[in-house]
């Protein structure tokens, strides 16, 4: 087993002014390349868990280690920088900046992070060539690449978003119900592509969904209910 990418110890989070913890995670370790499915109904802290893992939210107590480093005690700007360099993020929908073309959206992480850009260059590819390769691998027709993202179908938009999350081989890919806007057959297809590409770049994948049918094929399956403290109102 490779070195732990993420390690959470006795992690708790509560919103300021709230009566109790929204989340409490006694222990969670995710390894490189591990694919983790987190099941949770909406409203039980999915967004909060993703916010914590992405370093946008800071835990109220406990330890958060990311890539062998204490993540929770880093300054906000350092966590922002780490997110740019090491984390790819997939939203439910509307992932793309509407004023950029599909390929420009994919290239964004390489423009905002030198680390991810250099990883692409290390493969002897330009960011554009890499973006186009990934779009092709994810099945986006070449004719769509130069089009503005608003003109793409929802399915295409999610694939472009997946390419953007994966470009420059981030160590962690966080996916927030990225298939909820797709129909059932497209869901399975998209999930397979995402898992494939994540495996190729060796990324740890955390996939959050309320839909247990998608859990097949993941190494680890967690339920957010397990992390909800008893005291929750």
């Amino acid at each position: 087993m490779a070195l732990a990418r993420i390690e959470l110890r006795a992690l708790g989070f509560r919103w300021p002014g709230a009566g109790g913890d929204l989340l409490h995670i006694p222990q969670l370790t995710l390894a490189a390349g591990e694919r983790c499915f987190v099941h949770g109904e909406s409203g039980c802290g999915k967004s909060t868990l993703l916010g914590l893992l992405a370093g946008v939210l800071r835990p109220t107590c406990g330890e958060h280690h990311f890539l062998g480093q204490r993540f929770d005690s880093l300054a906000e700007s350092q966590r922002d920088a780490a997110r740019a360099d090491h984390i790819g993020y997939l939203f439910q929908q509307f992932n793309l900046l509407p004023y950029l073309s599909a390929v420009d959206n994919v290239m964004l992480p390489c423009r905002l992070s030198t680390v991810r850009r250099n990883r692409v260059l290390a493969k002897d590819r330009t960011p554009r060539a890499e973006a186009e390769r990934m779009l092709a691998a994810l099945g986006v027709p070449a004719a769509r690449w130069p089009q503005r993202s608003a003109q793409l179908s929802v399915g295409e938009q999610q694939r472009v978003a997946a390419a953007r999350a994966l470009i420059g081989s981030p160590e962690l890919v966080l996916a927030d119900e990225p298939t909820s806007a797709l129909d059932a057959t497209r869901q399975q297809e998209f999930l397979a592509l995402l898992a494939d590409e994540a495996a190729q770049s060796g990324a740890t994948l955390v996939f959050v969904s309320h839909d247990m049918r998608l859990a097949a094929g993941f190494d680890t399956v967690l339920s957010l209910q397990d992390f909800a403290p008893e005291v929750r109102a």
Binding site: A54, E76, D80, A82, A84, I87, F94, L108, P109, L112
Partner: peptide
């Protein structure tokens, strides 16, 4: 609002 969240997810600081 969504544009801002996307930029946030890409590591842009508040």
């Amino acid at each position: 609002r969504r544009e801002l969240a996307i930029l946030r997810s890409l590591g842009v600081r508040p």
